[in-house]
Write a protein that binds this DNA or RNA. Structure first.
Length: 591
DNA sequence: TTCTCACTCTCATAACACAT
DNA sequence: ATGTGTTATGAGAGTGAGAA
């Protein structure tokens, strides 16, 4: 390998993101020749502290060597076709579904025989496992075999080394009986265990399971594709477990802050809300205005009543338009627009090879994300009944129903809207995310520009795919536009709440100024409106209001508004809702 | 700075339906 | 009967924020 030290460093940067290690490479002047000699985990330990990095290094090094070798071969003799190349080209020509059965069968048989042939050629008659790190050898010598039990590091390392060897050395993803036997035997021999059937089977199983997972990382490999098309049928596999009787948890972090109203106003709002429920013949514009005015009543109800009651009390939630309107008011996001803008961008970043082409882009996106995070799509999108109480899209007869707590909430024919509504559910019902649902967290973070609910694996993907979670500035500009247009269009007294959301003084001020103008405007004329009276400036302690009005549990969040915001924001206190402040929500991450 | 704790992530494996 | 893809699950490993 004729690499210079600098070239090696560049190569190393492609898979290790650690400046200290990179600088060690420079320090020790590691060039191509040195690299070629670093063929064991022990030699890698000097450079990489973590086992994971050591293994990654070895695998990348293997790849590099392979590329070099094939380059060499093809440059010497371009007419010689290796079996690998051959079979892969034959499968890439093969159309997926609509070729005639006979051809397909021929092809398959042909391919299978090739696969068999190939592995027979490559795999030795007696398998010898690669050199193990000293620490393992020492444990074997010392007879500390308990360290090779399930969940122990030694077992992991050993299995990892063997599978790595099988894949990279022999291009073997599906060993035959005989080969598994050889592999198991080799491991038992190495461990100096009695050569019993059981012992061999145990390690064979471990290697087999590991290979299974490795296949996931090599979906594009010919053999893997072949087996997948052979066995992967819809409906096969363990049935998805249904979380019957469970309820999607509400998340305090998603709660919007409520300011309290005096009794009269609140009653008034409740009456209005009731009229909204009972009177189905309201003209659309006044209905919309009523809906906007009564956000407070609904927010409050959602805190302490189950989904079914909410839906009964506020049938407006069956209407996508009103849902989107509420999201716009409470989150400052025009979901319809944002979703339509983000889906193509995200899809493009997530998809490397065409996938799920029969689905519409939003569904495609859900599937791709689920595949990325190895989640089951069924928990987010299905054709029958939802398996979890968390928001689920159910696609039946070209209509997509959005379910929460196993209750159909709202339906739409537009897949874009469906995805938007799915995300809206988390905002509207202030729902927690299910602990491992990473796909939906990512989507939520993108559309609401809210990184609070991301986990590390999601952040890794965001970084890897260079996904842009809207910067705060963008978001504020977006919400400002929303708030202004909103008010211009409807002339309603409902003002958008500004986002006292980050600490950036200037931008906060900017927003406040914008709303102040609107407020002043409103104050001049608001006497004639039945709008909910905002808290009056002089009333410092809303807690002193009659108890019926302050049923809100005192949250730690409240303090912030009491102390800090009171001064700066009091002029813009006409806003009814306020985003939960970032400091307080930072306390604990919840999953 | 180091330590502790609570959380998430990863791994090995079980359970299931289907194919051979 | 065995192998495969699939999802579920418990336990160890890993990680990061707050405490000391």
């Amino acid at each position: 390998m004729n690499f210079s030290c600098d070239e090696v460093v560049e190569w190393c940067k492609s898979f290790i993101n650690d400046d200290i290690i990179i600088s060690r490479f420079k320090e020790l002047e590691i060039d191509g020749e040195t690299l070629a000699l670093m063929d064991s985990i022990d030699k890698a330990t000097t450079l990489f502290p973590k086992l994971k990095q050591q293994l990654l290094f070895l695998s990348e090094r293997e790849k590099l060597l392979k590329v070099q070798k094939t380059d060499l071969i093809s440059s010497i003799d371009s007419s010689s076709i290796t079996s690998t190349n051959f079979s892969s080209s034959s499968s890439s020509i093969k159309p997926a579904a609509n070729c005639s059965t006979d051809d397909y069968m021929d092809d398959r048989v042909f391919e299978e025989s090739l696969v068999k042939q190939k592995s027979n050629i490559l795999f030795p008659i007696e398998y010898i496992i690669p050199a193990l790190p000293d620490s393992l050898l020492q444990d074997i010598e010392a007879g500390a075999l308990d360290k090779f039990g399930p969940h122990h590091t030694n077992r992991q390392v050993l299995v990892d080394i063997v599978t790595h060897d099988l894949i990279n050395q022999y291009d073997l993803f599906y060993p035959t009986h005989k080969q598994f036997d050889l592999i198991g035997t080799a491991i038992i021999r190495q461990l100096k265990l009695p050569m019993t059937r059981d012992n061999i089977a145990i390690w064979k199983d471990a290697v087999q399971t590991k290979l299974k997972r490795k296949r996931l990382q090599h979906r594009d490999h010919v053999d893997v594709k072949h087996h997948q098309s052979k066995y992967s049928k819809s409906g096969s596999g363990r049935p998805v477990k249904r979380m019957i009787g469970e309820v999607a948890q509400r998340d305090r972090q998603k709660q919007l802050m409520l300011l309290n109203y005096d009794a009269d106003t609140f009653n008034d709002l409740q009456l209005k809300s009731k009229s909204l429920k009972d009177n189905s013949q309201i003209e659309f514009n006044s209905l919309l205005n009523l809906w906007k005015e009564t956000v407070y009543v609904r927010r409050k109800a959602i805190r302490d009543r189950p989904t079914s009651e909410i839906l009964e009390g506020f049938p407006g939630y069956k209407d996508p338009v009103l849902i989107f309107e509420e999201v716009k008011i409470s989150m400052g996001v025009d979901l319809r627009v944002v979703v339509r803008r983000q889906i193509p961008i995200l899809l493009q970043k997530m998809i490397t090879t065409p996938a799920f082409i029969t689905d519409s882009p939003p569904i495609q996106l859900i599937r791709v994300l689920c595949r990325q995070f190895e989640e089951t799509v069924h928990h987010t999108y299905c054709n029958t009944t939802p398996s979890t109480p968390y928001p689920t899209l159910v696609f039946v007869d070209h209509i997509i129903h959005v379910y929460v707590d196993f209750i159909p909430i709202v339906s739409t024919t537009s897949p874009d809207d469906a995805l938007a509504l799915l995300l809206a559910m988390y905002a509207i019902f202030e729902l927690n995310f299910h602990k491992n649902s990473r796909s939906i967290r990512l989507l939520y973070a993108i559309v609401f520009a809210d990184k609070r609910f991301l986990s590390n694996t999601i952040r890794d993907v965001i970084q890897e795919k260079q996904i842009d979670i809207y910067s705060e500035l963008n978001r504020q500009q977006l919400t400002e536009i929303n708030s202004i247009t909103n008010n211009l269009v409807t002339e309603s007294s409902t003002t958008e709440q500004p986002h006292c959301y980050n600490d950036n003084k200037s931008s906060v001020n900017m927003v406040i100024n914008a709303t102040e103008i609107l407020n002043n405007n409103e104050n001049a004329t608001s006497a004639s409106f039945d709008s909910p009276a905002p808290i009056v400036k002089g009333r410092k302690r809303p807690q002193k209001l009659p108890k019926t009005l302050t049923t809100e549990k005192p949250m730690p969040i409240d303090h912030d508004s009491d102390h800090e915001n009171q001064n700066d924001c009091s002029s813009s206190m006409s806003k009814k809702l306020q985003r939960v402040d970032k400091h307080s929500s930072k306390k604990k991450r919840r999953y």
